[in-house]
Amino acid sequence: MRVRRGMAGAAGVGVFMLLAVGCGGASMSGKATPKAPDAVHPAKPLPMQTTPQKATWTDSEDTSYPLRIAPTRLARGSDSDLKGVRLDDDLKGKVPYYFTFSYTNTGKGTVNRPSPARNISVNGADGQAAQQVSLFSGNPLATSSGMPRECREPGKTTLAPGDSATECEIFMMPKGAQPATVSYKDDGSDTLLWKVDGPKGGASGGVLPEGKPADGGTGDSSSRPVTLRITPKSVRTGSSADLSRFDLNADQKKLVPYYVTMQYRNTGKYDLLPSLNDKVLLRSAGGQEAKKLLLIDIGGPGVPQCPDAVPDKMVKPGATVTVCSIHMMAKGDPPVALVFQGEGHPSVTWRAAPGGGK
């Protein structure tokens, strides 16, 4: 068997292969055991923006082609859609979503083996990108699944000027999570976003309101566990001019700096270094993640708009420190979530918006 599409991913999301095993599963002898087909549950479309947008697609030779991309439908599938598929462990229990879109070659040359789907991402309200998966060709789901037919068919191998193609991709999301955006990101263009309207009053997906204090954990210099009381203070939009005296590379100069200020109170028993924002990351609407930007500034004034730590000394039990870090994100792809990834304690996620917080 062959993989339907190349192995690639948008927004750092891997494309996982699903191994088809037959509708009845396998017996101890390795032969498929016949089974009556389950009832088919049609996928449920979600309201979303479908405005066509100009984009580029860059091939493996770093040649960019102009496209126009238009979402058609995002639909929530059912667990039973993939009963005939052996899932990787990290996909089990997740819900399939089917995203259908069209793309048109708006350039003057023919595009060979176009695969804009690898740049597509379906993202939750917490900025977490769903896992994109690909089926082997010839899978047995063609007649006993609520999966849209276009998700079972290969894309075009060439696209002449003015021609269009329609494709469908499968994305797996945790139960309880809700898609908030669909995004497209290629090296040759800014991030494109389409909003998805989830159910009114739906679950927050474990995302705390901006600025709400929460408990977290980390380790001291000897890896001993230390508990924290964490309060996000603000997420502010910076300017590239703020970083002009630093030697940023060409890609970094295209990004927008965001200043994340957090307050930590040491509720544990051991001293901590003040560099606690090393464990903070920012997630964007398009599913991108940005860790703290490391700047070499030995003995320098730093970035006045974002001081590293106040006070800049060991954080003793009961003491509080306020820390700011710089996170770089693509233009047109604003932050939506702020995450503290501690040690010995579950990660904590808050909603984030430039200028929000306390």
Score class of each variant (00 low, 15 high):
Lys83Phe: 03
Asp278Met: 11
Val260Glu: 00
Gly109Cys: 03
Lys331Cys: 04
Val339Tyr: 01
Gly124Cys: 11
Arg245His: 08
Ser189Lys: 09
Asp187Trp: 10
Val260Met: 04
Met28Phe: 12
Arg236Ala: 14
Lys200Arg: 15
Phe99Asn: 09
Leu281Phe: 12
Leu272Ser: 07
Gly356Met: 07
Ala130Tyr: 10
Thr50Pro: 07
Lys31Phe: 13
Met328Gly: 00
Asp126His: 03
Ala8Gln: 14
Lys92Ile: 06
Ile296Gln: 05
Ser115Ala: 15
Arg236Glu: 07
Thr322Leu: 02
Ala117His: 11
Gln263Phe: 11
Met262Ala: 06
Pro232His: 10
Asn119Lys: 12
Tyr103Val: 02
Ser121Met: 09
Gly302Leu: 02
Phe246Leu: 09
Asn119His: 13
Arg265Cys: 07
Ala125Pro: 01
Val339Lys: 14
Gly127Val: 08
Lys94Cys: 13
Val196Trp: 09
Lys269His: 06
Arg224Glu: 02
Asp308Ser: 15
Leu338Pro: 00
Asp88Gly: 14
Ser284Ala: 14
Trp57Ala: 13
Val321Gly: 06
Val133Asn: 06
Asn112Cys: 05
Arg236Asp: 00
Ala337Ser: 15
Thr191Asp: 01
Phe16Met: 08
Arg76Thr: 04
Ala129Arg: 15
Ala117Glu: 13
Gly109Pro: 04
Arg2Cys: 04
Gly30Asp: 05
Pro47Gln: 10
Thr231Cys: 01
Asp271Ser: 10
Asp190Arg: 06
Gly188Gln: 11
Pro140His: 11
Trp350Cys: 10
Val95Met: 15
Ala36His: 01
Pro311Phe: 00
Ala8Glu: 14
Ala117Val: 00
Gly22Glu: 07
Gln263Ile: 11
Thr261Val: 04
Met1Ala: 11
Val226Asp: 05
Pro116Asn: 02
Thr267Tyr: 07
Gly344Met: 13
Val15Trp: 09
Val207Thr: 03
Leu192Cys: 02
Gly201Ser: 11
Ala55Leu: 10
Arg5Ser: 15
Lys44Val: 15
Ala32Leu: 14
Val207Asn: 01
Ser78Leu: 06
Ser144Ala: 12
Tyr184Lys: 12
Ser347Arg: 05
Val85Asn: 02
Val21Arg: 05
Glu169Gln: 13
Asn139Thr: 11
Asp163Leu: 00
Ser347Phe: 06
Gly202Met: 04
Arg245Pro: 09
Ser80Ile: 07
Gln128Glu: 12
Arg149Ser: 15
Ser64Ala: 15
Glu210Thr: 04
Arg229His: 12
Val133Lys: 11
Trp57Pro: 15
